[in-house]
């Protein structure tokens, strides 16, 4: 087969994986530390994308718009935490699901009211819209390459933050024993709010970076949220390392399946049957992978310690 095509699709898979990682890192942090199932995480991603669309139009600058959108999502996340989610920490998971389901409905409708039902697209600036040569003779979209770079940078940052800093120490301590950390005089409420804000900003970053590739529209956060859930289940809840590995795994499986499965099926099926079956089967692949992981490791690939 065409080696360049394979290389390109691998990079696409890693790129999707990086977006998933940004989304999942926040989800798994919030779950691991606050024990909160946040369905509205996808809404924060959507709001990030909408903020980005608005701010780039207002400022006329791609980068400035992105930074402003990140700050806006961070603030939105903190407000949501203080107004609503803080009251849910002590409740059970079903309450989390229902309450944050309510938030999704609210945000979708709010986005419809503010930005209208039509989707928005964000044009890339010329320096990102071109292709760069990653290997001699192998061109690749500069923007997608930049997503991979940003994703790796965030992964490195989180590794440093959680593993090497005082805040990270508190985060890890909070994950294994909340009451004890509180009893030692740490302002646990503030810590939770900060962690939630961080998760929201990461979701916003994913939304910002995904926005130019797909259309900004209502409900865009929901499908990717479910992919993020699959990642969390595969990687193990509460584990950032697991989220990173599982994100890339899911990204690769999804992209490669869509790209190569039709060709693969044609080897032993009629072309018509292959082209009907391929979309259905390739969209099932990641769920099959999840089921496979569950059968052998019900706690995920990297179960978080403690908790």
């Amino acid at each position: 087969m065409d080696l360049i095509l394979i290389l390109e699709q691998t990079l696409n898979g890693v790129q999707l994986g990086m977006l998933l990682f940004l989304l999942t890192a926040g989800l798994t942090l919030v779950f691991g530390i606050m024990d909160l199932v946040n369905l509205a995480h996808g809404s924060l991603y959507m709001m990030g994308a909408y903020f980005f669309a608005t701010f780039t139009r207002l400022t006329g600058s791609f980068l400035l718009g992105a930074v402003l959108a990140l700050v806006a999502t961070l603030i939105l996340g903190i407000v949501v935490e203080i107004v609503a989610l803080r009251r849910l920490y002590a409740r059970d998971h079903l309450d989390h699901v229902l309450g944050t389901f309510g938030l999704i409905l609210f945000f979708n409708e709010a986005a419809r009211l503010v930005w209208g039902p039509a989707g928005m697209s964000i044009p890339l600036p010329p320096y990102l819209a071109r292709a760069i040569e990653i290997l001699p003779g192998v061109p690749y979209s500069a923007y997608k390459a930049s997503i991979i770079v940003v994703g790796l940078a965030v992964a490195g940052f989180l590794y440093w933050l959680v593993g090497r800093t005082r805040i990270g120490m508190l985060i890890r301590a909070g994950a294994s024993n909340r009451e004890m950390v509180g009893a030692l005089g740490v302002n646990i409420r503030l810590l939770f709010t900060l962690v939630f804000g961080l998760g929201a900003a990461l979701a916003g970053l994913a939304g910002v970076m995904d926005a130019p590739i797909r259309t900004v529209q209502i409900g865009m956060g929901e499908n990717i949220l479910i992919l993020a859930f699959v990642v969390v289940v595969i990687g193990g809840i509460g584990s950032i390392r697991g989220a990173f590995v599982a994100s890339i795994l899911v990204g690769l499986i999804d992209v490669m399946g869509r790209a190569f499965l039709p060709e693969l099926l044609k080897l032993f099926m009629t072309p018509i049957a292959a082209s009907t079956a391929a979309p259905a089967i390739s969209s099932m692949l990641i769920y099959v992978a999840m089921a496979g992981v569950l059968v052998f490791r019900p706690e995920g690939l990297f179960p978080a310690r403690g908790g």
Partner: peptide
């Protein structure tokens, strides 16, 4: 085989899988 939040996410994911199968029909 799983409990708590895993169960929520997994049932959601499987339902989504069937949803995509229907979309693919």
């Amino acid at each position: 085989r799983t409990k708590g939040v895993y169960f929520i996410m997994i049932t959601l994911a499987f339902a989504q899988m069937i949803y995509f199968v229907a979309v693919g029909l």
